[in-house]
Write a protein that binds this DNA or RNA. Sequence first.
DNA 1: GCAGAACCGTACCGTACGGTACGATAGAGG
DNA 2: CCTCTATCGTACCGTACGGTACGGTTCTGC
Lengths: 219, 219
Amino acid sequence: MRADATDMPEFSPRQNAVLEQALRLLVEGGEKALTTSGLARAANCSKESLYKWFGDREGLLAAMIAHQASKVRTFERSGERLTADLLRDHLELFARDLLEVLAGDVSLALNRLAIGQANREGSKLGKLLLEHGRRQIDRRAMALIDQGKRAGLLRFDNADAAYHTLYGLIVSDLHVRMLLGELGLKDNVRQAEKAVAAFLSLHGTQKQSADALGVSAGR
Amino acid sequence: MRADATDMPEFSPRQNAVLEQALRLLVEGGEKALTTSGLARAANCSKESLYKWFGDREGLLAAMIAHQASKVRTFERSGERLTADLLRDHLELFARDLLEVLAGDVSLALNRLAIGQANREGSKLGKLLLEHGRRQIDRRAMALIDQGKRAGLLRFDNADAAYHTLYGLIVSDLHVRMLLGELGLKDNVRQAEKAVAAFLSLHGTQKQSADALGVSAGR
DNA sequence: GCAGAACCGTACCGTACGGTACGATAGAGG
DNA sequence: CCTCTATCGTACCGTACGGTACGGTTCTGC
């Protein structure tokens, strides 16, 4: 289950159940629906226990983020010999997963919560969300494009910059739009394909067919 | 001043001054600092007037967005004959302006406010922010890349998709990171250059030097 | 079977917010 | 000079939140 032994408290099953209820309340009604009284009622626990377990409200929010992050594990299946097609497949899979994660109810709700809490410089929640939520996905992508470079399929100077390019091509302003309440894409798969095609056109070592880039006839 | 006669109420000078104070409070202390009592105190007006002018708290927030949007006007200087260098310059200028706008205190505060308010499907504030705040910048970029295509300098099937590609290359996940409390880029200019170089590599009709793409030696 | 801890449900407290009401003040118009 | 309107400052109200306290109940270890 848990690959790396990242310190962190870890919560009891009972506490996890309460955190799950908290996430449900947050998803369904936004931050204003997540009150201590409401959570105690929904989770059949006492407010006293909430404060005993999580300290205060901010501690509860932090625990919710940690709890949610602990549920998401990315399998790093490296090993296999990379070909151009295989690299493209993995990149597209990553893109689809990324789009799916960002569009998830819980992810959107937690991001809205942390963003609403943040002011200029220094949101505990924001930092926590970035570290816990992003680290997994970042590592997966970085490992992938690094592998692509070692296999001679990608070329770039700065792996971090290349990753940000990939991220931007996949997500564009979609994340912010969804955070603001807009609906997601109709076709994540096509978006993933187009983003990866563009990325390979920029950083791939092999000639890319222009079809998937949408620069010639078609669709 | 106002180019297009977009309906909308427009506020009196006094009301604008109050809205300016409201923005200041929001920027300095986040949403929790923007209370009706606090605003009345800061702006030397009565709460009664606030409710008379803006209806209720949500009306006030909407008025703040409208007020801020009314201050941002993009000059569409078209006309001139486009060359490849000119197109690149204009794209880079657009990229720099976009990065600067997104990193602005007021923009971040308003986006945080609207996002914090939003839950799944249907945030009045979110829709308002998207329409008022984004329309200007979108139109400017669309006009630019459309012009580029007519001049034979760009090629793409879907102008909207091309614009989103440009946007993603420029912004990547920077906007969300800043919304979460992270600091902005150290060098907006370089980011703008790299993004435009990548965009031209994808959709330009002329060969792009690989230098600016960061794929060869040279930092 | 019993002691102790953990926990639940409820009641309670102080505070601060959104929104309303009211008397006082100040210009504008005649 | 008088009146009307707009606004200010303050006081007020109901509500609902975060956080605490307490008695009753269940669970655990011995």
